[in-house]
Design a protein around this nucleic acid. Structure first.
Lengths: 141, 141
DNA sequence: CCGGGTACTATCAATTTGATAGTATGATCA
DNA sequence: TGATCATACTATCAAATTGATAGTACCCGG
């Protein structure tokens, strides 16, 4: 038992060595959010998650699940089925994430049109603006 | 004006081409969360953000801010100061993110000890477990 | 005993990130 | 009249991460 949380290293999330930030970096990750989202609907097998979360490669899925398991957010259980199967479940700790992850999804869905509108406007105006008034121009190659 | 949101392509965040997921990928990003967090405290100049968010490189900061601006979440304003200065401010749309981003920080802070405890336990048990009962062992190099 | 399904890992290329240095501009200072 | 400083970036290239794809060990049903 190491005694590394007797001195909490600066309660400042913006400091590079803040432990809170390590946790944050893990949770604020695109695949994490999607995978936790799926697991909120109940336990899933590896292949089920792979098919549900479109576009995730087995390498990244495996890695993300192991990281989540490491942090105590999901539990990995080996079922003794005919072809060996593995089931992933949210731990009680992981279930707490539902309340903070679903607002993200909801927000994204609610403001989708605003955001895509802004994007189009930005891209249209792109060529006309000079973002570097203190620099002449990027030199032509 | 393209008319691409008349047919909403599958209201399924888990589909690769879902527009909600594009937004999600942007918001659920470690630097985004930290930068928005800083901007929630008020307008900041580029250098202020760079110093506040420890460890972010100018390249990534610049890129992230431009992406946020593109999505209409922050506004970039050129101040006419002696050495030209730039101020970044949350738009009303971006301000809405405070309510969903601060819960993430709070959650991470609240469950920090649990998570780090789980991590230590996992790392300790690491060598002893056999995670692949359907495979013998990884071949020794 | 062949093919299919499971849950991954290995391998390598492609993309992204990070570290660092450079640049244009004007104010200030010597 | 330079020299220096400060700002807000961009350029460049190495390093880390990700992604695509193929392979593996196991068992079962045909």
């Amino acid at each position: 038992m190491t005694e590394q949380h007797i001195a909490t290293p600066e309660r400042n999330v913006y400091a590079a060595d803040c432990p809170t930030r390590q946790v944050l970096d893990q949770v604020a990750h695109k695949w994490t959010v999607l995978i936790i989202g799926i697991l909120c609907e109940g336990p899933h097998r590896y292949g089920q998650i792979a098919r549900a979360v479109e576009g995730v490669s087995p390498r990244v899925l495996s890695r993300t699940l192991r990281d989540l398991e490491r942090d105590g957010l999901v539990r990995r259980e080996l079922l003794n089925a005919s072809p060996p199967a593995v089931e992933y479940t949210l731990t009680p700790l992981g279930q707490g994430l539902e309340e903070i992850i679903s607002p993200i999804r909801d927000w994204a869905e609610r403001h989708l049109d605003e955001i895509h509108g802004a994007r189009e406007r930005f891209d249209d105006e792109a060529g006309q603006q000079d973002r570097t008034p203190w620099q002449r121009q990027k030199p032509m190659p």
